[in-house]
Simulated scan of single mutants.
Amino acid sequence: MQLYNKLSAKERAALIDEAGEDRLTLSFYQYAKIGNPQLFRDHLFLAWNQMDVLGRIYVAHEGINAQLSVPAKRFDEFKTFLDGIDFLENVRLNIAIEQDAKSFLKLKVKVRPKIVADGLDDDTFDVTNKGVHVDAATFNELIEADDVVLVDMRNHYESEIGHFKNAVTPDVDTFRDSLDLIEEDLRDHKEDKKLVMYCTGGIRCEKASAYYKHKGFKQVYQLEGGIIEYARQVEQLKLENKFKGKNFVFDHRRGERISEDIISNCHQCGKPCDTHVNCANEACHLLFIQCDECAEAMNHTCSDECKEVIALPYEVQKELRKGIPNSNKIFKKGRSEKLKFKRSL
């Protein structure tokens, strides 16, 4: 019985090219009590592997958080499978605005302590006492009011390339870092201001809204379905789009364009750019913003040092990576001192 992915990303990409079929990138989450996450995880893997579903899925006692790529021709089969699970029946599926058949190249279903690393002790507050969900039209009206504080619940590298106008965008590396920082900054407005939050697909706001209500905020709202669903409703209902730039997404695309505005800069030359890449040096793999010109000049690396490394034979690069405890900078996400035009702390 196969319970884990056995193909490399390169092998999977070749199979996708060979098939030449459309795939749908989508995401969903659901908080629910799962008694045996490992058993549920194995059930999902067996079913989805058979359907040729790819993606990154986290399962915990508190629920599921999934980002997926599904063959378009098998979408109905996939939806029927979800509807056969009590707590996932009619769950909202956030369909990507921009499709890419190679958004995911492996099926990874992992059991985690939590479906979002929020650092909260859920036993200390009522996680079901959430904020008011609002749709795109209501959200547009709400954020124009004088008694509203609009907060981006994402991390610095996400909001850097796109955010709603007039939003507070905490300069943080992780979701857990933002929670206490936002409370401290807004502590004088817990009663007289409406706290309105948004994130990529809505999952971070689900827990955060309950946390802030527990902390004394009287009026808490959250954008239902996050930026992904907002963009869909704006297009479908012909609403004014108040999001500027790109929506960062956690797959190989790294971003979906929501408006034509480019609000960030290439981290190497400073010209307007909002294309995230990973450094081509596998010992670095730093996530940063790089324009086409710098990509060509720097051979898709973040620094002269990394450019020199990838010019070496691959076997030599592998040897250099051995035993270096801080070799992989993937979690720094644009913070490297080698980036002249990075977002400042």
Rank of each mutant, 00 (worst) to 15 (best):
residue 298 M to V: 02
residue 275 T to K: 15
residue 283 A to Q: 11
residue 265 N to Q: 13
residue 340 K to Y: 00
residue 97 I to K: 12
residue 107 L to R: 14
residue 333 K to P: 03
residue 228 I to W: 06
residue 228 I to H: 08
residue 275 T to C: 14
residue 67 Q to H: 13
residue 105 L to F: 05
residue 162 G to T: 05
residue 182 I to R: 08
residue 97 I to H: 12
residue 203 I to R: 01
residue 327 S to Q: 12
residue 5 N to E: 15
residue 283 A to V: 03
residue 151 V to N: 06
residue 138 T to S: 13
residue 176 R to E: 10
residue 95 I to N: 05
residue 247 N to G: 04
residue 3 L to P: 10
residue 197 M to Q: 06
residue 147 D to W: 00
residue 6 K to Q: 13
residue 60 A to S: 15
residue 306 C to K: 06
residue 143 I to F: 05
residue 313 P to K: 10
residue 334 G to Q: 11
residue 262 I to L: 05
residue 2 Q to S: 11
residue 137 A to G: 07
residue 299 N to S: 11
residue 319 E to S: 14
residue 47 A to E: 10
residue 285 H to R: 13
residue 34 I to W: 03
residue 89 E to F: 01
residue 280 A to Y: 09
residue 269 C to W: 00
residue 59 V to T: 10
residue 175 F to S: 00
residue 65 N to K: 11
residue 4 Y to K: 04
residue 200 T to I: 12
residue 176 R to H: 12
residue 287 L to C: 07
residue 8 S to E: 02
residue 282 E to N: 12
residue 154 R to T: 14
residue 110 K to D: 03
residue 22 D to E: 14
residue 2 Q to R: 13
residue 37 P to D: 06
residue 195 L to N: 12
residue 169 T to K: 13
residue 105 L to A: 02
residue 38 Q to R: 05
residue 125 F to T: 03
residue 23 R to C: 03
residue 133 H to K: 05
residue 126 D to H: 08
